[in-house]
């Protein structure tokens, strides 16, 4: 929390935090107080929660789909969220406030692809392939509509809509944190409880059924949980890429693929990655780069390096 355009020392940071936690009078100047407690603290906690939420979704999505390329956005969550946000931004919709409308629209629309898949599963078996393909078709539909909306609106609106799709922690505040944190926490508990079923599903649907798992229903439950968790993150931060894809893989290198360890491990890894990326984002520029750019730009090479380095065949 010492990194950023406004210089604050480690000691001052601790002082502000201690003061706040124990409700002591503060000897520090107001501006330090405000920077630490009103800006950097919620930003840091948002990074932790968002990182953990995206990583836990990614880990379970990969295990459920049995696909190393799956991430929290695989079934079209990101494109749904973008479309929702872009509608709210370009049409200037306001619920309470304008930013609240963006969040609510993003959240609602990010759940649409999952809803479509759940509906389809009534007619067709919810296999991993069916889910991915259905998710991708919904994604194309949403992307087309998003692009159309952006084409027909003016440059300024398009720019702010575009900015939303990159993913940023700049809007982090105390008010958004409780919602995000409680959804991520609740979802993670559910996913951890279901982790042993994921382990059996890893050996194939037929085997999983013969140890008593209703595989199709389990997939739908998992999909809904993952969608809600990632939607709660995405709707506040925009689409932060890469963490949800890579954090589980990095965790697998250290902990192996047992979902009982992988899922909580990925949460720690995702939180750490996002916090580190945010520090980088703040150190290189005075305006703080959108974190989505940093995660992808830094995460890519690091991950390539890990793929080459690691000897154990996790994939």
């Amino acid at each position: 929390m010492t990194v950023g355009s406004y210089p604050i020392t480690m000691g001052e940071v601790y002082q502000v935090i201690v003061d706040h936690l124990f409700d002591l009078g503060s000897p520090l100047e107001n501006i330090d107080q405000r920077v630490v407690w009103e800006q950097r603290m919620p930003r840091l906690l948002t990074a932790v929660v968002a990182g953990a939420g995206l990583a836990v979704s990614g880990a379970s999505m990969q295990s459920m789909m049995k696909n190393p390329l799956a991430d929290p956005y695989t079934t079209g969550i990101s494109s749904g969220a973008s479309f929702g946000a872009v509608i709210a931004i370009t049409l200037g919709i306001s619920i309470g406030s304008h930013s609240a409308a963006t969040v609510i629209f993003a959240f609602v629309f990010s759940l649409v692809p999952a809803a479509v898949i759940v509906l389809l599963s009534r007619f067709k078996r919810a296999t991993a392939a069916m889910m991915i393909l259905a998710g991708i078709s919904v994604m194309y539909i949403f992307n087309a509509m998003t692009q159309y909306m952006m084409l027909v609106s003016d440059a300024e609106t398009t720019a702010s809509a575009f900015e939303w799709t990159i993913g940023t922690l700049n809007k982090a505040s105390w008010s958004s944190l409780p919602v995000m944190a409680s959804v991520v926490a609740a979802g993670s508990v559910v996913l951890m409880i279901l982790s042993r079923f994921l382990n059996a599903m890893n050996s194939g649907d037929n085997y999983a059924k013969t140890v008593g798992i209703n595989v199709e229903r389990m997939r739908v439950i998992l999909l809904i949980t993952i969608s809600v968790v990632s939607a709660s993150v995405v709707s506040f931060t925009g689409i932060i890429g890469f963490v949800g894809l890579v954090a589980p893989h990095v965790t697998r290198i250290f902990l192996g693929s047992d979902n009982r360890y992988l899922i909580p491990g990925s949460m720690l890894m995702g939180a750490t990655m996002l916090v580190l990326c945010d520090i980088l984002a703040k150190s290189f520029t005075t305006t703080a780069l959108p974190i989505g750019i940093v995660t992808a730009f830094v995460g890519g090479p690091v991950f390539l390096f890990l793929i080459i380095r690691q000897k154990k065949e996790v994939w």
């Binding site: 990969q62 295990s63 049995k66 696909n67 190393p68 382990n199 890893n202 050996s203 194939g204 037929n206 085997y207 059924k209 013969t210 140890v211 008593g212 798992i213 209703n214 697998r252 192996g256 693929s257 047992d258 996790v314 994939w315």
Partner: peptide, 22 residues
């Protein structure tokens, strides 16, 4: 399925794991 699983086990023809455990 769960009650059946307590009585009947199954060894599939092949195992297709993506992320293998110990």
């Amino acid at each position: 399925l769960k009650d059946l699983a307590k009585l009947v086990s199954f060894v599939p023809h092949t195992e297709d794991t993506t992320f293998s455990m110990s």
